[in-house]
């Protein structure tokens, strides 16, 4: 479980996160949602230690990231997997090389054991046969799956995903969402996903935190999101043309 308490972050005097409180549960897909520029990415980058918050606490199962020594942070990071918006695969390595990278750096496995583990992760994300291809030779969706395979190679306790569906078509987005949800439940990982994709919210959102202008506005799950009275969240949820049409139809006819 990850707990965030009174987290504040400013850039050049402009406060981007205002005393955020949040809890991310183990074995659940925890979603951070909000409009572009609302502070979602800053929150995720603060959670993984890429940005240093001005104040607050970030507790990884009771261990405060902000008071750890650099050695403790290094050890904690071995328990963290991250999926970046642009996948962040190493161009010079093949798919297999990318997945094997954390194993090479942080385990004392033999090469055969590393190969076994890497191939298991590659098969887990349905990429068998692509292991010798370079990132530039595979599609965006496949790159995301390679990044997921790399992120789970060390059996992480915490998995962070920064807009995993950006740049993907709706069908591929659903594949990625289902994969993340399955992995979360299968391995009991604390997964934190930063997204503004409503398909993800309605499909895998077990614990949803809505951030608006740097404030935590709402917390709930996907079944509660339709019935919320929070105006900002309603604006966000019903921002797509399809939802707006449905909403207008229901307002006019009383039901669909």
């Amino acid at each position: 479980m990850i707990e965030v308490k009174k987290l504040r972050k400013s850039f050049d005097g402009r406060t981007v996160l205002h005393d955020i409180d949040a809890t991310f549960y183990t074995g659940k897909t925890n979603l951070i949602i909000g409009q572009s520029g609302s502070g979602k990415t800053v929150l995720v980058k603060s959670l993984v230690g890429l940005l240093r918050p001005d104040k607050g606490e970030i507790l990884f199962d009771g261990r405060n990231l902000l008071t750890m020594t650099s050695q403790e942070v290094k050890e904690l990071r071995k328990e963290i997997g991250m999926l970046f918006q642009g996948s962040a695969l190493f161009d010079s390595e093949t798919v297999l090389g990318n997945v094997m990278f954390p194993l090479t750096m942080f385990t004392s496995m033999s090469r055969a054991e590393m190969l076994d583990r890497a191939m298991f992760c590659i098969e887990r994300v349905n990429l068998k046969g692509a292991e010798n291809k370079y990132p530039s030779e595979i599609s965006g969706g496949m790159q995301k799956r390679v990044a997921i395979a790399r992120a789970i190679a060390l059996n992480p306790k915490y998995l962070f995903c920064d807009e995993p569906n950006s740049g993907l078509d709706p069908k591929t987005s659903i594949v990625i969402d289902e994969l993340l949800s399955d992995i979360t439940h299968e391995y009991g990982i604390t997964t934190v996903i930063n997204t503004h994709d409503m398909n993800s919210v309605l499909g895998i959102g077990e614990n949803i935190i809505f951030i608006n202008k740097g404030h935590r506005e709402w917390v709930g799950d996907m079944s509660q999101i339709y019935t919320t009275s929070n105006e900002a969240l309603n604006d966000f949820v019903f921002a797509t043309r399809l939802f707006q049409d449905v909403r207008a139809y229901v307002a006019k006819h009383g039901k669909i």
Binding site: G49, L50, L76, R77, M82, F84, M105, F106
Partner: peptide
């Protein structure tokens, strides 16, 4: 520089490298 802007360096840091 390209590794920096494509977040590959961030990925290394997250892994603890």
């Amino acid at each position: 520089g390209t590794m920096r802007v494509t977040e590959q360096i961030d990925a290394l840091e997250i892994m603890g490298v």
